[in-house]
Nucleic acid binder design. Structure first.
Lengths: 236, 236
DNA sequence: CCAAAAGTGTTCGTTGTACACCCATGT
DNA sequence: ACATGGGTGTACAACGAACACTTTTGG
């Protein structure tokens, strides 16, 4: 087979930023690295791209390996390629961004990888440029969740509006007006009233909704306005 | 030096999508490929990542090589890595997205690379997965230009509001209301009246504005609303 | 003086925001 | 009955969309 007359073939890594929501905080799935260099230190879950595998397939494999989940929300985020980002040898890393329903993960698999769910504000320092990757991912989450209905990917199949609100409050780290939030979300036409009521509550039981997946897929790329303007990345 | 016990090191390419605006149409800078395979066919401008170079530096080098321009608007777009995307050997390509002021480019350099500025609707079929890359880039241009003031990157230093409108009409391939457009753009606070008037016109001369670069940098990441809602990617 | 392009103004409906009030539940 | 949290309503300001009129310029 013809090969390009170029000498520098390099290692391609995949790193995955996996977000979850426990009802209170946004959490990151982090692992204690099991290879040198930096063995035992906290890092993102990652791996090397295989010869016979597409990038997204590689990301899916790595995420499945750690969480036991398939068919979740995964997006390519950005590729990090600074010359010395990995002290062992030159490695370019394609970073993926994933949102999962935290209840669904396989806790055995997570334990076997020495992984933990860690709140954003309690996250430890990470190896290499992984801190930068996480910063970018948080920025992306805030950006995208303001315009597109990705928040639902972090909630269980049935959820209440107050739960949804707590999620957005966690993402933007700010309180929201209950009444305006509720009206805005209901007006999206994405929520289907299941008729059931939540019974976790000690007081009035909230209505359980599910996502209208048809409309969700149809209108995903529309521009919504899930955040008050004052919360957008920069006030105008 | 320690190396990872992994066999598959692969070739990393950089491909650049370079947009310009000639006052009428959005144009792409495309080249006739000068190496095998697919020599002589139309493709994006690209190259291989060097051992000692960061990704963005590589992209800057390739764009400079073709256009003679530095310090232009460049963004990493997406990384393409399908196993068989390049028939010669496995190559993963990091795609960059660039906007330039078309008048400023070095036409000698462009000629030497067998490159041409080609209108979007007249673009030829491209090699490999480059058509897909271009589609993604157009989508990204439309998305981003609706929310952030990147349009200015395609205009000369001094420009008129009608010119700006023609640019947005070209990006979205749709007519816009002159009066609403003008008011909206003036209200951004990004335009500085230079006091000069355009003299290309055969009728009334339009005011020449320049970009308020201070405010531009400060507020770049804010969410604007440069397009009528009806033009957003999907109508709600 | 007329056509063509640039600039300014007005009206109206929709949306966002800041509020107040009522309802259901467990103690 | 009351505290806690869930659900609905209203009033006002801000913004976007549609549309009319005036001004400048070259022929």
């Amino acid at each position: 087979m013809y090969r390009y007359p170029v000498t520098s073939r390099i290692l391609l890594a995949i790193d995955c930023i996996i977000f979850g929501f426990d009802g209170k905080d946004i959490k990151l799935l982090l692992v204690k690295r099991n290879l040198e260099p930096e063995m035992g230190k906290w890092s993102l879950m990652g791996g090397f791209l295989r010869e016979d595998e597409d990038l997204e397939v590689g990301a899916g494999r790595i995420i499945y390996d750690l969480t036991g989940l398939k068919n979740i929300y995964v997006e390519q985020l950005e590729t990090f390629g600074k010359v010395n980002r990995d002290p062992a040898e030159r490695t370019v890393s394609v970073v993926f961004f994933a949102l999962i329903q935290i209840e669904e993960h396989d806790s055995e698999a997570v334990k076997n990888h020495n992984a933990s769910w860690i709140s954003l504000d309690q996250r430890p320092g990470l190896i290499f440029d992984h801190n930068e990757m996480v910063s970018r991912a948080i920025e992306h989450l805030r950006y995208k969740a303001a315009l597109h209905p990705i928040g639902f990917e972090l909630l269980p199949e049935l959820f209440t509006i107050p739960q949804l609100q707590k999620l957005y409050e966690a993402i933007y780290n700010t309180p929201l007006d209950r009444r305006n939030f509720s009206r805005k979300l209901l007006s999206t036409g994405l929520l289907i009233d299941t008729g059931f009521k939540n019974n976790n509550s000690t007081t009035k039981k909230a209505t359980l909704y599910k996502l209208d997946t048809i409309r969700y897929k149809e209108k995903f790329h529309a521009f919504w306005n899930f955040m008050p303007d004052s919360m957008k990345p920069v006030k105008i």
